[in-house]
Design a protein around this nucleic acid. Structure first.
Lengths: 234, 234
DNA sequence: CTATGATTCAAACGTTCGTTTCAATCGAGC
DNA sequence: GCTCGATTGAAACGAACGTTTGAATCATAG
């Protein structure tokens, strides 16, 4: 009674999700219209509302399809690493590589979304729509908490507040790197064919991020004249 | 013949630019409609087309108003530092601080746009619309080239390709940090009142970025199985 | 005061948006 | 073969979009 339905249903839904992934990345969520999406997917205009309910629900489905497995994999890898170390704290670079590597592996695996989705994801972190950022945050929260604990265990001497900031910086570097396609050409001519070589990029990113994470904690000399400016902003 | 016109003309245009800065940040360029913008600015619906020509031209004006002076200031500060050093190469952290500091100073100075514009800017780096990214790139290009040369002089031993990547990472960290408002709360509870204390943030960011910039260059062991994946992506 | 050019105003333009409707089509179960 | 729920199809919905129009209003120069 349901076997019959699964095949073509899954087929249509998948085609819509694939088209949405690509067009959302190219034009944004508001810029990609229902008519563009359905035309690209080769389905009827009404199919999105029929299968997903609304355009907003489609956006959520696009992210859930990729992020739920990805973050599960991320956490599983961290579990594996900690189990293998037998209770000894992991090296920070190892934790970084576990987090970064999972994202970069998506680039190479078209089945997991490839570059399309990962660039869409990078752009969405800073999307102006609060609803969308909230969705992303919610999907990332468990993995984020898990990795934060791992870092705290690996760096017991680093002040908690400084750690939080540095995780913020690291997440920013990763998401921006995955999203940006122009800055690199802006800074200097860059061969695009090795720009997304995931293994090389993973090494570069891990080296950069690990060094930043382990940077000496700056003495807080900067607090002199800032109180008033904070107050005026309130 | 023109003095009379300057006052109210400037007044209306400024009100529109201020409203656009805020609403573009909150809703994005497509999400903020002409009717929202003019209502917030307290001007007639036709005023934007009258004074700026089109909505697209308004977007460009919003960025030009802030970025042209900002990047001029950035370059001037670098000139000043190099002149003061008397030909000796600058410390990388000094160059970073010059770049980062100019952005962060905007946060504290409402006359220069304050948080509103700087967050709008951070979000725009990854905007899906090619036209907008091209505009931002064009406005940043001179400052970018200038700072790239300064870093190359400060780090003669760092391979040029690695430097370009690390500038990419650094620019990403900065722009994401300025844009993101949610990730920090996601990672851990964070007192928002010191989140945008520019002086403290400048110290944190500079320490993080300088460490990343000076990280050991990773040996490129990652190139083993990546050739095929590069080809399949082409 | 009158004439002139700049600016504001209310109203409407045609287009496109996301969504809905309802008939047509499909495919398995009795 | 017929029935019935699931899916697709073509067409239309009202709303909102960016833009344009032409008259009204304003402030100055003569």
């Amino acid at each position: 009674m349901n076997l019959r339905a699964i095949k073509p249903l899954h087929e249509t839904q998948t085609r819509i999700l694939d088209a949405a992934e690509e067009l959302f990345m190219q034009h944004g969520f508001e810029g990609a219209s229902m008519r563009m999406l359905t035309a690209r997917a080769g389905v009827n205009l009404a199919a999105i509302n029929y299968h997903f309910g609304s355009k907003d629900a489609l956006v959520e489905a696009v992210f859930r399809r990729r992020l739920d497995p990805e973050n599960a994999e991320r956490i599983a890898e961290l579990d594996r690493l900690e189990k293998a170390s037998g209770g000894a704290p992991l090296a920070p670079a190892t934790i970084i590589r576990a987090f970064v590597g999972t994202s970069l592996r998506m680039i190479q695996d078209e089945k997991k979304g490839g570059r399309n989705f990962i660039r869409l994801l990078g752009r969405t972190y800073t999307d102006p729509a609060k609803r969308i950022r909230a969705l992303i945050g919610q999907l990332y929260a468990p993995a984020m908490a898990r990795f934060k604990d791992a870092f705290a265990k690996a760096l017991p001497e680093l002040p908690r507040e400084e750690l939080v900031w540095r995780l913020h910086f690291m997440f920013g570097t990763l998401s921006y790197t995955l999203a940006a396609t122009d800055t690199l050409e802006l800074i200097a001519g860059c061969k695009p064919e090795d720009r997304y070589d995931a293994a090389v990029l993973e090494s570069r990113l891990t080296a950069f991020l690990a060094a930043g994470l382990l940077a000496p904690v700056p003495q807080r000399t900067g607090q002199r004249a800032t109180d008033e400016s904070v107050k005026q902003a309130a």
